[in-house]
Design a protein around this nucleic acid. Structure first.
Lengths: 130, 130
DNA sequence: CTGGATCCAAAACGATACTG
DNA sequence: CAGTATCGTTTTGGATCCAG
């Protein structure tokens, strides 16, 4: 910790790359919400639409396709009428969900700290503008 | 696991919200890269520009401001000439960085699985289009 | 019910010239 | 060195209508 930089920077970017990949797949406001919503069992399209508050039909579809494509979701179509489709997390995604809980914990531990930091920052900005 | 949905969906969204907040602050192609780059000690603007490969001056500045605003980065200005500015992770951000490593691990464990899933998905798509 | 297709607004991003 | 300002491009997302 707190040692000087030389060419360790190169190591830094290599360390970051896989993570950037993950977040590219998992990012987009909605992926996480969907994973969490699907975490405790098979869930249908309309249920997801209600569970992930604020999502539009379009974004739901797009995100579902991306998650399916990345092997995080499994899609089961029941050829009934009306149609019924269930989405289930893959094992891979279930591991991911467990990992994400660590992030949730972090978020909850520091939620108020972040809010406070913002408030301070904005206050400073107001002073410097006045 | 694999129980039916009733009104547990409500719980799902509440569980997701804080996490969505985090990712809103930490998201954007560059935040993570910057956090990783700053993780092993104070780092200067130009060093960051080189460490986070592909980032533009503009995005670097914008992302730095946001991270600072959210209390993840501390900015130290040395009023010398030429100017010198150092960015340091806050304690909060260091915790976050540790948490992110879990994600990195997950990504590396499943990198090839994701690639394979994609390949299959694209193959299917090709068949269904033909 | 599940979702594809289209159109449009907004946000994120990139390049680059300029400044204290 | 460490940014800011401006412009153009790309990506993202919402609204809506249509279809199996």
């Amino acid at each position: 910790m707190s040692q000087r930089h030389t060419d360790v920077t190169v190591q830094a970017i290599e360390e970051a790359c896989p993570l950037v990949e993950v977040l590219d797949h998992v990012s987009g406001k909605w992926s996480i919400g969907i994973i969490v919503a699907a975490a405790h069992g098979p869930i249908r399209f309309t249920e997801l639409e209600r569970a992930v508050s604020g999502i539009s039909r379009r974004m739901l579809t797009l995100t579902l396709r991306r998650l399916e494509r990345d092997g995080l979701l499994h899609r089961t179509v029941y050829p009934t009428v009306p149609p019924k489709v269930e989405y289930t997390l893959t094992d891979m995604a279930r591991e991911l969900h467990a990992t994400l809980s660590a992030l949730t914990d972090w978020a909850e531990r520091h939620r108020s700290a972040i809010a406070a930091a913002r408030k301070d920052y904005d206050a400073d900005a107001a002073v410097n503008t006045a």
